[in-house]
Amino acid sequence: MSDEPSLSIDRRTVLKSGVAVGVIANLPAIADGAEVKVAQPVNVTVNLRINNQTHALTLDTRTSLLDALREQLGMTGTKKGCDHGQCGACTVLVNGRRINSCLTLAIMHDGDQITTIEGVGAPDDLHPMQAAFIEHDAFQCGYCTAGQICSAIGMLKEAADGWPSHVSANLTGGVTLTDAEVSERMSGNICRCAAYPNIVAAIQAVRGGEA
């Protein structure tokens, strides 16, 4: 049904639902030995545009954008912390917006502009946000850091566009990025080392043009 040239499905069998469902482990008995059809993986090809480079990939439809980056492309800067949208470590920018790459399918993103931490800056060519994170010690173990930085970049754009937040005093009066505003807007990125105050400081420094 798809007319997109970059997206072709090489196996079109629509599988019947309920096939080969794992037996719930605490049910009293194993299902009898009747022959059960095992669902076959489906591969599709997709062109992903990541950090201004196009990658043609053949992917299992089940592949999350996160796993495509990490396991297919070896771009491991984007991290898997929970795989369920509960931590933010996998945050990337898609068409300039921050999203959780664990909760989206790679095949849904052909044609999108995807920016990962590798595209934000390099050790010898740091983005101001990256430099500010170093200067303000806005990380410890470093595992949530890529997600924090991508999220911070996306967040500043949202604020610049005048988007209010949960803690905004009013919805229509424009955005003043107080520390409380930054904290609320960055709350989708968990840092168990709890560098939060330093993350806020780093973002404020970038916003203020200090970094």
């Binding site: 049904m1 798809s2 007319d3 997109e4 997206l7 499905i9 196996r11 079109r12 069998t13 629509v14 599988l15 080969a20 469902v21 669902a39 076959q40 993986p41 489906v42 599709v44 299992d60 439809t61 089940r62 399918l105 095949i107 849904m108």
Partner: peptide, 15 residues
């Protein structure tokens, strides 16, 4: 995750 086939809908009625 179970394997699944995928299609992208281009208009609502065919979706």
């Amino acid at each position: 995750m179970m394997p699944f086939t995928y299609e992208r809908a281009l208009d609502a009625s065919s979706a």
